[in-house]
Design a binder for these strands. Structure first.
Length: 310
DNA sequence: CGTGTTTGACCCGCGC
DNA sequence: GCGCGGGTCAAACACG
């Protein structure tokens, strides 16, 4: 296709370079939970799943009642998780995000070799039948996590480098959905970014997959950065933290030597005093309920931030 | 030149 | 089986 003058000035094309100028003055992360229940056909209902109508009226009111941030419906029933790769979608159980025993990580590692073999077989088969660029293999679903972020920018800086590989119009929404992929060659993490049609100030970011590498953006993040054992959970959970830190970096125009990828739910006291972080803590509260079964969590999350969701 | 974005085409899964 | 819509690909392009 002949590319004409690219006059696309979509507000979602904000790059990392311009992001710093558009840091939201108010950043309110509202909720996070498993999006694995999101069906292929139902992805359009993200807002519904997220209960954004309930969210919209007053995030702060809701923040006063963390329990209201929980998904309106209980987590989807877990199909028997055999070693089949298709089960990856249901692996986003409340696995320990900050421990190496994360189930999705180990399971995925175990599945990886099996799935690779299967994939190669299928690819070889289908290569002859289909265009090389297309794969006939069953699409595998990584664990997904969605954030609702009150922000003016769509693409939130989360410490990783992303390459946009697609943009689609969303049905019943004036805002497009953008597809990003981690630029690391070995990392297949993707994320989707879309704006709520109900409340344009709300950005829904959905992470899919696990980072297999530390954050490349953070200068000293390798030691405590998000590694394979935290994966997407880490990315997902660290994102608001990083944004918060980035936010304050922008505000204070100074470098913080500890600025790096934080492990999930590793609350850094240096930023915990900020008003924004209070919101982040609320966010993490919601996340805590999400991860309620994991021992290490109690070590880093104050008990009053934990929610029993039964 | 390397990296990231744009965008139309294509594939695939699902509902009817 | 067909159509719709979500998701992905990849060439062309933009930019530093």
């Amino acid at each position: 296709m002949e590319k004409k003058e690219t006059t696309m000035e979509t507000d979602n094309s904000i790059g990392a370079t311009t992001f710093s100028d558009q840091i939201p003055t108010t950043f309110s992360l509202s909720s996070i939970f498993d999006m694995s229940c999101e069906g292929e056909k139902g992805s359009l209902g993200i807002m519904d799943l997220l209960g954004i109508q309930d969210f919209t009226p007053s995030i702060f009111d809701l923040l006063q009642q963390p329990s209201t941030l929980l998904p309106p419906s209980p987590p989807p029933p877990l199909p028997p998780t055999s070693s089949l790769p298709e089960s990856s979608e249901v692996l986003n159980l409340p696995a320990t995000p900050n421990s190496s025993s994360i189930s999705s990580s180990s399971t995925e590692a175990a599945n990886d070799e099996q799935t690779k073999a299967v994939e190669e077989e299928e690819q070889e088969k289908t290569k002859k039948q289909l265009k090389p660029k297309k794969k006939n293999q069953k699409r595998q679903r990584e664990p997904r996590f969605a954030f609702m972020t009150k922000s003016e920018v769509d693409h939130l800086e989360d410490g990783y480098r992303w390459r946009k590989y697609g943009q689609k119009a969303v049905k019943n929404s004036p805002f497009p959905r953008s597809y990003y992929r981690c630029t690391s060659a070995t990392c297949g993490v993707k994320k989707r970014v879309e704006r709520s049609s109900d409340d344009p100030s709300i950005v829904v970011t959905t992470y899919e997959g696990q980072h297999t590498h530390p954050s490349p953006v953070m200068p000293r993040g390798s030691s405590t950065g998000i590694s394979s054992d935290s994966g997407s959970y880490g990315a997902a959970f660290a994102m608001p933290m990083q944004l918060t830190q980035s936010h304050f970096q922008q505000q204070q125009q100074q470098q913080q030597p500890h600025f790096h990828n934080l492990p999930p739910l590793n609350f850094n006291s240096n930023i915990s005093s900020s008003p924004t972080f209070v919101q982040e803590r609320r966010f993490c509260t919601s996340a805590a309920s999400f991860l309620r079964d994991h021992g290490l969590l109690q070590d880093v999350v104050p008990s009053d931030m934990m929610i029993k969701k039964e």
